[in-house]
Design a protein around this nucleic acid. Structure first.
Lengths: 327, 327
DNA sequence: CTGAAAGCGCTTACAG
DNA sequence: CTGAAAGCGCTTACAG
């Protein structure tokens, strides 16, 4: 059924090597080119990827390692990568790790073993083991979401995002604030967003109470009562939209009116924050665009073109209904 | 750097074919087995996938074609598949089509060309072209979400789901109902859910107005005003949670209180329906479990084991806050 | 520009 | 149980 390069060669009356050269853009005369072209379209010939990869010792696959499949940020980033890659000669291979660090490391080696042309790593944390693995496999890599001195990285401007939220919250007159962040192990979400927020609120005469939770919505809900009762804040600034969603739900379950009784903000710009009632004031992250850029960059790296060590994706404050003006 | 089977053979003092046999579970004596084992662990040898696939003319890849990446249903199904496959000898390859029918067909051929061992197709529609392609490529296939006589299928019990919602809505005393469905081109969502709902409401003395929208949340929002003004329903039964989310938002924007002024239901059991205020009464679909089962089934097919032509995934009514009791 | 030959790293009958 | 040999479908120097 499926043809080989040898059969194509025979049908076209040329040598295998000539067909191969035609396929790979080598020098072929106009008329042999035509002959081969005809045969190929007639037969619907498609080269065998394995044979090709075996010889060439590389593939046209871009491996993308993601921590989870069911996240807005992941999905959008993947969509961006996919969009950029689908019309290129590269193919996207997605490897999910379910937030298991070991699987993440394993995936690096396993994808390298499959001779992927490049690697995009949607990172939540960059450990020594990551760096070590990336070093060993020695293929082009782009980190997305976290930054490392030793890698090409694409990050969102978390600190700026935090700063914008901080400025806005102060501007709305809030002076008793809970900042509900996440562990500082996560540099982007845990450290930088908070840092930007601190910088914006530092000079203002306001109390900011810092608390921590994880990325889980339900966990945030559980934390709500304690935070609200302890600090009686007029606003809870949440380090992710997901956390904000949890706080919103918990507040509403308690019978509070948002934003009249309590204001809430998030980070990320997940679609759903526009749909809740009230809609949530947040900072828009451009995940899809980041994916596009990451894909473009990895292709450049593969082609030995220069790219910046660090690419910054912008963020933008989106003012909606969940923040009250305090007078 | 990376070793070949030949080097392993030399180090172990045996022939390549013996190493190969060891690798593939052929008969090898205990002591040669030990020798080879030692060398392999010492060297960290990993067989070259391409060489293997080239010879064997097949891979251990399960291709999964998805219509979109940013959907709760897709994500959950993929998580299920991934979970089942990650500890097996098979690898998951995800191919996104962005709801482009042509890309869907292309993906079938392209994955077949890559000699995937099996194919899982998260289908929204099954056309002649699909069947044709599936037929031609002649590899094990499982359809998920839609059913076809000519394929192994795994579907959710849409009709039952529709029936349950219908029974519940009637039981709550609603008699002026809008059923907001989708195009009948989609058998599962457009036809079966409605059919079940009709069956449940047929005998009741109530008015059901059938309307249609697409899968887009914003589109549903746009439809709201007309539906509400025209029919003055006490409830809008939406064919997906996404549509329900749109209707909920539109109703709230109009200043209606849900469920006091208007009740709303969905289908799917998306996480977010639990978080909205009010939470949405819906039918829980078990996407992740469906993914697990699909993966198990495709492996059985690959191994020439028997499976049922049709597997039904159950659905379950989840009563929450968005439906009022009418007296 | 074109072709013959070697080789990529594995597996698979076939002998022994 | 074990090994030598052929071959999977391609690409890549090397001659011409």
């Amino acid at each position: 059924m499926t043809k080989t390069i040898g059969e194509i060669a025979k049908l076209a009356g040329v040598a295998k090597s000539t067909v191969s050269r035609y396929l790979n853009g080598g020098s072929v005369s106009a008329k042999t080119k035509l002959k081969i072209e005809t045969v190929i379209t007639e037969t619907g010939y498609v080269p065998n990827t394995f044979a090709r990869s075996l010889k060439a010792k590389k593939t046209n696959i871009i491996g993308t390692i993601v921590p989870r499949l069911n996240s807005f940020a992941t999905a959008q980033t993947l969509i961006g990568i996919d969009e950029e890659l689908k019309d290129s000669e590269y193919q996207l291979l997605i490897s999910n790790t379910s937030q298991d660090l070991n699987r993440e490391i394993d995936s690096i080696y396993s994808l390298a073993n499959q001779k992927v042309a490049g690697l995009i790593l949607l990172a939540t944390k960059v450990t020594e083991r990551h760096l070590d693995a990336l070093n060993k496999v020695n293929i082009p890599v782009i980190l997305v979401g976290q930054q490392s001195e030793e890698c090409y990285s694409l990050i969102h401007d978390d600190e700026h995002a935090g700063f914008e939220i901080g400025k806005y919250v102060i501007g709305q007159g809030h002076s008793n604030i809970v900042y509900l962040g996440v562990s500082e192990e996560d540099i982007a979400v845990g450290v930088k967003r908070k840092k930007g927020f601190k910088r914006a609120t530092y000079d203002a005469k306001c109390a900011v109470h810092f608390a921590e939770t994880d990325f889980d919505l339900k966990e945030a809900m559980k934390k709500f009562d304690y935070l609200y009762e302890t600090y009686k804040p007029t606003i809870i600034v949440c380090a992710t939209d997901n956390i904000a969603l949890g706080i919103l739900k918990a507040a509403q379950l308690k019978g509070l009116k948002v934003p009249d009784d309590l204001s809430i903000t998030g980070f990320g710009g997940y679609d759903i924050t526009e749909i809740t009632h009230p809609s949530i004031t947040t900072v828009q992250y451009y995940y899809k665009e980041a994916g596009l850029t990451a894909a473009k960059n990895i292709i450049k790296l593969i082609n030995n073109e220069e790219i910046h060590k660090l690419t910054m994706s912008k963020t933008e404050l989106v003012i909606r209904e969940s923040v009250d003006k305090i007078r």
